[in-house]
Amino acid sequence: MDVATPRRTKEIIERHGFSFKKSLGQNFLIDPNILNKIVAAAGLDATKGALEIGPGIGALTQQLAREAGKVAAVEIDRRLIPILQEVLEADENVRIVHGDVLEIDLQALFKEQFGEVSGVSVVANLPYYVTTPILMKLLEERLPLENIVVMIQKEVAERMAANPGTKAYGSLSVAVQYYAVPELVCIVPHTVFIPQPNVDSAVIKLAMRDKPAVDVADEDFFFRTVQASFAQRRKTIHNNLSSWLGKDKREELTRILESTGIDPVRRGETLSLQEYASLTAALETHGLKG
């Protein structure tokens, strides 16, 4: 029987005496239609693998097991392991891993679990409180991923997919879009979870790029420049970068910005990824590295 119904979820929780931990951001999805949209967005088939983070009681895991050739589900809460083993007992293509995904060696996990599949996608309902650290680890480690399809807080999903010049566009938008092409799949109301969170969620698909969106010589400096440019959103990019690089560099910074075609009075949220790459290169050429 499918887990993703209110009746079945409550029955499993009560039978195992499970209590939700607020500190782990546990909210179980009880709408099979949303699960179908999540799995469909990942483009899985019998030749591909799926890494799930935070499977809970296995609602999404069941659907993944039907579509993918191999599924690895990483769960941090030891109390959920026996529940998952029971729910997924018949799914021989699922491996349950107890651990914290932020601490696990994902490169080793991929070699061990997905050595024989043609491609891997991350598919998960992520806890709100740890969404960004998990996603940045997945992106920065250059894992052999095709897609990342995750359900996260609606506001965060909108920031990841935002275009330059919009209110939602920020350093997170630049970081995600450097590695992937984001697409909002659907909005998920808070009413389809047990327990219900206080805000709505969204499913976002990040299609991984073969190479980063822009060429930069020093990725760390590129991202530090972006962060500095958004330090205070109401300030111009010139003022933000001056605070970062030093007030004595104001005149030189003005010349550098103008040489790259960036008006010093613009704000950080108006710059594209390519403009940030050009700016970073110009700063490096002039030896200005904060």
Rank of each mutant, 00 (worst) to 15 (best):
R7Q: 12
R8S: 03
E11M: 09
E14Q: 15
E14Y: 03
R15P: 00
R15V: 08
F18Q: 04
S19Y: 11
S19I: 05
L24E: 13
G25T: 08
Q26F: 08
Q26Y: 07
F28L: 09
L29S: 01
P32F: 02
I38G: 07
V39R: 06
A42F: 00
G43T: 13
D45A: 07
A46C: 12
T47W: 03
I53M: 10
G54H: 04
G56T: 03
I57F: 05
G58A: 05
T61C: 12
Q62R: 06
Q62Y: 04
G69K: 05
A72G: 03
A73F: 03
V74K: 01
V74C: 06
E75L: 00
D77Q: 02
P82N: 12
V87C: 12
A90M: 13
D91S: 15
G99F: 00
L102S: 09
L102A: 06
D105Y: 01
L106P: 11
L106S: 02
A108P: 00
S118E: 15
G119H: 02
V120Y: 03
S121I: 02
S121E: 02
P127I: 11
V130W: 01
T132M: 02
K137C: 03
L138C: 10
E140N: 09
P144Q: 10
L145Q: 02
L145M: 00
Q153N: 03
K154G: 05
K154Y: 09
E155W: 14
A157M: 04
A157D: 04
E158R: 15
R159F: 06
M160N: 04
A161I: 11
A162E: 02
P164T: 07
P164W: 06
G165W: 06
K167G: 02
S171N: 03
L172P: 01
V176W: 11
Q177A: 12
Y178H: 11
Y178Q: 08
V185P: 00
V185W: 03
H190W: 03
T191K: 08
I194K: 11
D200C: 13
V203M: 06
I204A: 05
L206V: 11
L206M: 14
L206P: 01
L206G: 07
L206I: 13
A207K: 15
A207E: 14
K211I: 11
K211S: 13
P212H: 05
P212C: 04
D215N: 15
D218I: 05
E219L: 13
E219K: 15
E219M: 10
F221E: 11
R224S: 13
Q227S: 15
A228M: 08
R234Q: 12
H238P: 08
L241D: 10
L241T: 12
D248G: 09
D248F: 10
E252M: 09
E252P: 01
T260K: 04
I262A: 11
D263K: 08
D263Q: 10
R266G: 08
R266L: 14
G268H: 12
G268C: 12
L271T: 11
S272P: 05
S272W: 08
E275R: 01
A277I: 03
A277W: 02
A282C: 09
E284Q: 12
H286R: 14
H286K: 15
G287Y: 00
